[in-house]
Design a protein around this nucleic acid. Structure first.
Lengths: 350, 350
DNA sequence: AATTAGCACTCTCACTCATCGAGTGCCAAA
DNA sequence: TTTGGCACTCGATGAGTGAGAGTGCTAATT
């Protein structure tokens, strides 16, 4: 069911107007702002049609129209045109990201901060999905009797570690042997294929440590490996949402921030989205209003894309903003931040 | 200038009432709720006195009185009586904290979450101050050519690490030697006495690596050591503030969350507070309203105390809440969480 | 000297009511 | 198919009002 060209124009204009003014737009002001050379009555008819088709809605009988979720969806899918950022904005983002030096984590955090600042919304980043990456090194470092540091090195240059407790009287040498044996056995395996069994099988019989103690060490090593896969979601700029007129009522604001406080929920939803969309690299996942199945995000949109760490390892970056946002602009902002992030990651990984 | 006993009673009652109702308290309701056997006129006189002395203020001519910052201060310093938590509340906190297993970091985060949930306010934790702790181990682990992991082990069982870049062709063996040399040289030194010079002096001449490359490695090692001292502030539960009537106006809420978003600012202020109070262990630092010299916290109070990791290493834990809070209750909550945290830390450190 | 009753005064809050204006839907004419 | 015209709807605004809670002050009482 395609819209005729004029309806498209009208919808486009209404979305633009509503996004910039946050006021229901009426037939008259539509003519004033855009150069439609038909009368207001004609527009009224068009608008009534668009409403019947579900693209617009009325807050109450005698107000202008606002876009419905479906209206925004149409706008995003076929009406808007993404334009590049101004040189000025680009420069600011570039500078910001470059100044966040350090490890991968700091870099991602820096990108998130930049994105939130640029958009004025909440930015969202998600640590890389490491299930498919494989293990290249495993070291267990004795810290003191009873305490060891397990260092897990993955393809794509990711390093994770975990401090674990081990039986008190296991020696340096023993740990060293265990560590080597495990490493030999599971190097090259994708993370999601490693199980407690795989880890343990390296060692059966080949050691002088009683099984029960050995198992404890193995378990800790296993846990450390598995933990490397943990998905960390980082949200930044929650407070910025309070300045938006969309959330100027205390009720909505409270609900939104309450929902945002639960990172786990957002993380879970992201996973779900990803499963649905099977995104190819460089594509965007966009969810508008009620398309978001989480409580409390009715007036929001999610836009995310992926950043790349090589070897097919990817994480997410994006924003959560009011559904009344300048989609084309926000998308170019995300895109530009993502590109810069990819670049910087490449640099720190050589 | 001491208050006479009745004035104390009156102030006490007013603070209690105001805290629980959030409404300016008048002479009449004061009699109703508390068993004062004087007339309302007498109380009015007392209240007028207290106002002149600066303990109370009036929102407008014809409303009841509310405590001023000075009033709260008096209340906190000499009027209130801290009572232990109910068995029920204790159990909840205990359970919550025990369920946050893992490394020190997780434990602290767990304590913060618990505290925020228990109080309904923002909780604040601060990683331990490590300046005075000394270095017990330093390992540099080769990850791949050009990349190494520096592991710093401090007294009090703290382990920190940092992924660093090193010149490409430095070998495993060389790194091992450098690491040993540095370790030998600075083990036992307090963190704040370690300088780039101290680190470097270990190695002069004793190696076959060109100075310029060596310096790069040394610098990274030094940076990794210094970074161990970084103070991390963690704030949790910002959204809870929105539910409080104290911040039910959008303006205040926005300002508060904006200020809270800047962890660095809060961290800086904590440092300042600490310097002023020279706290002995187990004492509380309390700042009420305008006593807090930060922008945006006029209606808030900070209450913090320290948690202990042994060897004199301490961090901070506390809350940021509305100054209209049940001080005695909040203090016992913080106290109880702190005790549990101390205990759990002891357990994971053996 | 401290306490109390009484009273005039102040100020906020909640409520009502009328008005205004932007916008709509629909009909009949072009 | 488009347009002008018109009656209607509904939220926002602002003024006016009365109730209620509280105060300060004064004069009488203990």
């Amino acid at each position: 069911m395609d819209l005729d060209p004029r309806k498209k124009e009208v919808l486009h204009a209404i979305v633009d107007d509503y996004v910039s003014t946050f006021e229901p737009v009426g037939s008259k002001s539509l003519i004033e702002r855009h150069g439609f050379d038909v009368s207001s009555a004609t527009l009224r008819n068009e608008m009534a049609d668009l409403e019947h088709m579900g693209f617009l809605e009325k807050p109450h009988t005698s107000a202008g129209r606002i876009p419905s979720d479906k209206g925004y969806r149409e706008y995003v899918d076929s009406l808007m045109k993404v334009e590049p950022l101004s040189r000025r904005e680009q420069a600011k983002i570039e500078e910001n990201i470059k100044s966040s030096v350090g490890e991968l984590k700091d870099l991602i955090k820096g990108a998130a901060d930049t994105l939130s600042q640029a958009t004025g919304f909440v930015s969202l980043t998600c640590s890389p999905r490491l299930k498919k990456s494989y293990l290249t090194q495993l070291k267990i470092l004795m810290i003191e009797p009873g305490k060891a540091l397990v260092v897990v090195v993955l393809s794509a240059g990711v390093v994770k570690d975990k401090l674990v407790r081990i039986p008190n009287f296991i020696t340096d040498k023993q740990i060293y042997d265990i560590s080597n044996a495990i490493e030999k056995n599971i190097t090259g395996k994708p993370l999601d294929e490693i199980t407690l069994i795989t880890v343990s099988s390296a060692l059966k019989g080949g050691s002088d440590i009683p099984d029960s103690l050995l198992n404890q060490v193995l378990y800790e090593a296993y846990a450390a490996i598995k933990q490397a896969d943990r998905m960390d979601v980082y949200l930044e700029g929650e407070h910025r949402m309070l300045s938006l007129p969309d959330f100027s009522s205390m009720g909505r604001a409270t609900q939104l921030l309450g929902s945002l406080a639960d990172d786990g929920m957002v993380a879970g939803y992201l996973n779900e989205m990803e499963a649905q969309d099977k995104p190819n690299q460089d594509s965007y996942m966009i969810r508008i209003g009620q398309e978001i199945t989480l409580e409390g995000f009715d007036d929001c949109s999610f836009i995310t894309t992926t950043y790349n760490m090589g070897d097919g390892v990817q994480g997410n970056i994006g924003v959560i903003g009011p559904k009344r946002m300048e989609y084309s602009k926000v998308i170019s902002q995300i895109d530009f931040v993502k590109k810069n992030l990819d670049e910087q990651i490449k640099i720190i990984n050589e």
